[in-house]
Structures are given as structure tokens and as C-alpha cells.
Simulated assay, not measured.
Amino acid sequence: MARPQCSRCCRPVSHCLCPLIPDLANHTRLLILQHRSEAGHALNTARLAALGLRNAQLWIGEHFDGLEALLEAEAGGAALLFPGEQDAPRGNSAPIKPRLLVVPDGSWRKARKILHLHPCLGKLPRLCLSSGQISRYRLRKAPMAGALSTIEAVTLALNMLEAPARFDDLLRPFEALIEGQIAAMGEETFLRNHGDQP
């Protein structure tokens, strides 16, 4: 028999994260495009990010009807949070200040598939985070150096775009989620499977 589930955070009621989810006002609109395979995942950080921000939407699927029209309506005011060659200006140039930040969510393969299925995303300027970031996501082995969970990437991006405002409180439910998963598996199992990570 399935455990009762919180309708908001989609966690078991006994492990509901809602009391830890902040209510943060962000000026940069956030659109998270979550691959449908991630929606039911126990460690769904995209949902936590969307719930903690007043100006955020979470679209779930693979083909997103209306995405191209939405980006056209933004008339150059959108950017894509994803590594790539079209980085935001660096050095003495002012960083881009998008009105809308689009964030693909899924495994690297699934996120790239979303980009492939929606060529309009490839035309957006890319906002790339500084290299050398270390993820707090201790339950997954990063596929590459600097790989972050969606909620970590969103937090860093908003901290950069909306400084001096800070969005670190977004990470509170994420950290509780990680600690809860470690407690459920037991410290010994965690160290055996994940103890070699930085």
C-alpha cells in the first residue's frame, strides 16, 4: 500500500518538505522544462526550486507546445541556463540580465534531448555558471566536474543575476532531502556507495 503523499511537494507526508520551502520573490522569471522521466523521481529538485520562487513555472514533458511562441514574445529577453559555447559575456562586459531564464531539467542526456527537440532554445544566449562549482548532491556521482543539481544551478544563477539579493534559502529543503535519504539508507551504506566523492 502506497504511503500518503503531500500534494504540494510530492513527498511522503511523513517526510514533507513544505515547512522548509521558502517563499522568495525573484524578478527574473524562471521556466523549468522538466523531462517527464524526472517528474516522479524521489529527488526532484526542480519541483522544490519552482515551489520556493514566486515567479517560476515548471513544465513537465518532452515536447512543449507554446514554448516557441513564448520565447518570441520575450523579444530577446530570454536566456538559457545550460553549459555551451554561447556563454554570457565575461570580463569587463556587463552580464546578460534576462527577463526569463529557461532551465532544462533531467539527466544530461535528457536535457540535451529537450534542446534538440526545441531548436528555439539553441538560439537563446546561454547563461553559464562559473567553473569549479562543487555540488552538495552527495547521492549522485556527477557525470563531469562542476555538474550541479537543478536547484543548485538555479540558486547560483539567481544570486548572480539579482545580486545583492540572495536565494540560498532555496537549498534548505534540498539539504533536508539529501540528509533524509542518507539517514534512510544508513551511514554505512552511504559511505560504501558515495564516500569517495569530494
Results as ranks from 00 to 15, higher is better:
2 A>L: 14
2 A>E: 13
3 R>G: 10
5 Q>R: 14
6 C>Q: 04
6 C>D: 10
8 R>G: 05
9 C>D: 10
11 R>G: 00
13 V>Y: 07
14 S>E: 15
14 S>W: 02
16 C>A: 15
20 L>E: 12
22 P>W: 01
23 D>G: 01
23 D>C: 02
24 L>V: 11
24 L>P: 01
26 N>G: 12
26 N>D: 08
28 T>G: 07
28 T>Y: 04
30 L>T: 03
30 L>F: 04
31 L>I: 03
39 A>M: 06
39 A>K: 13
41 H>F: 14
42 A>F: 11
46 A>L: 01
48 L>N: 02
49 A>F: 01
50 A>R: 13
50 A>N: 06
51 L>T: 01
52 G>Y: 01
53 L>G: 01
55 N>P: 00
56 A>N: 07
57 Q>T: 06
57 Q>R: 15
59 W>Y: 05
62 E>L: 13
63 H>N: 13
63 H>E: 14
67 L>P: 08
68 E>G: 14
69 A>Y: 01
69 A>L: 08
70 L>F: 00
77 G>V: 01
78 A>L: 04
81 L>I: 05
82 F>E: 09
84 G>F: 12
90 R>F: 04
91 G>T: 10
92 N>E: 15
95 P>L: 13
96 I>L: 15
97 K>G: 02
98 P>T: 06
98 P>S: 13
102 V>T: 09
103 V>W: 07
103 V>F: 02
105 D>Y: 09
112 R>C: 14
112 R>T: 10
114 I>S: 12
115 L>K: 14
115 L>N: 10
119 P>V: 12
121 L>Y: 09
121 L>I: 03
121 L>F: 00
123 K>Y: 02
123 K>S: 14
123 K>W: 04
125 P>M: 08
126 R>A: 15
128 C>Y: 09
129 L>K: 02
131 S>V: 11
133 Q>G: 11
139 L>V: 12
143 P>I: 04
144 M>P: 00
147 A>K: 06
147 A>E: 08
150 T>A: 00
153 A>G: 09
154 V>H: 06
156 L>Y: 08
157 A>F: 00
159 N>G: 09
161 L>T: 09
164 P>G: 06
166 R>Q: 12
167 F>V: 04
168 D>F: 02
168 D>W: 05
173 P>T: 12
174 F>T: 00
176 A>I: 01
176 A>L: 03
176 A>N: 05
177 L>C: 07
178 I>M: 03
178 I>P: 00
179 E>V: 06
180 G>A: 06
183 A>F: 02
185 M>G: 10
188 E>R: 15
190 F>N: 09
191 L>Y: 10
192 R>D: 15
192 R>G: 11
194 H>V: 14
194 H>G: 13
